[in-house]
């Protein structure tokens, strides 16, 4: 490299578009996850195991399982998302890629949204896909299973989005995992109530359109607000490190 042949360095004005940067963040997270596939299976195994505990611990009777099944599946899915949240930012925090993410010349909340979307595709979506099998095992009828999957499909992204705030707030703290659960579970309650309530209504044969629409509203609210809070929390946690 020769100093004379290169032009003088000037401030740059154009950066890569935000959408392209979001896509890059998303695909990098996917790539990293698929190089460590076992980590992808863990939340799913956990989900199945928690569901198994209920027939063993409470009662294998068809009537009980049919009544409680949707609730069991929802609680298990919620716990399994909660368990996976600790990883959302921690590895990036440890190896320094999080610092570089915060320093990218794009709005941070959109990059956080891309990361959260990747988290959902890697944990929430597989849970939704696995739910029908477990639904059959707890003797839910076909219609209830369909509604259950729909509520999980709308609800699990909300869990990831709210969870991202907690994961960002507890980044770098000792016993972050337990603390994360303490902060996030109360905020998960509305999603849980409407998720299970919608299935209960469907089982009784009531129309569920209004409830599903309301869950959709939760999702819209979470998409618009949670990334801001998570981005702010990330900056605070990095300031502190």
């Amino acid at each position: 490299m020769n100093a004379e042949t290169r032009p003088l360095i000037k401030p740059q004005e154009s950066a890569v578009s935000t959408v392209a940067a979001m896509r890059a963040v998303f695909s990098r997270d996917m790539k990293v996850a698929f190089r460590q596939r076992q980590d992808l299976l863990n939340p799913l195994l956990f989900f199945v195991m928690v569901v198994t505990l209920f027939p063993l611990g409470v009662s294998p009777e068809v009537s009980f399982l049919r009544e409680a099944g949707a609730g069991i599946l929802w609680v298990a899915a919620l716990l399994s998302v909660l368990l996976s949240l600790d990883h959302l930012f921690r590895h990036d925090f440890d190896d320094g890629t999080l610092e570089q993410l915060v320093l990218q010349p794009q709005p941070l909340f959109l990059l956080v949204l891309a990361k959260t979307l990747a988290h959902w595709v890697l944990t929430g979506l597989p849970l939704v896909l696995l739910a029908p099998v477990l639904g059959v095992m707890v003797h839910l009828d076909g219609n209830s299973i369909a509604v259950l999957c729909l509520t999980l499909l709308i609800g699990t992204p909300v869990l990831s989005l709210i969870g991202a705030i907690g994961a960002a707030l507890t980044l770098g703290l000792r016993s972050a995992g337990v603390l994360l659960s303490l902060l996030i579970i109360p905020l998960y309650i509305p999603v849980l109530i409407f998720g299970t309530g919608t299935v209960a209504a469907a089982t009784e044969g009531a129309p569920v359109g209004a409830y599903v629409a309301l869950m959709g509203a939760f999702l819209v609210l979470a998409i618009t607000l949670a990334p801001f809070a998570a981005a702010a929390a990330l900056k605070i946690s990095l300031s502190n490190s």
Binding site: V32, R35, D95, G96
Partner: peptide
């Protein structure tokens, strides 16, 4: 921290 992902 170098900002390098070990898996990539």
């Amino acid at each position: 921290r170098p900002g390098i992902k070990a898996l990539l």
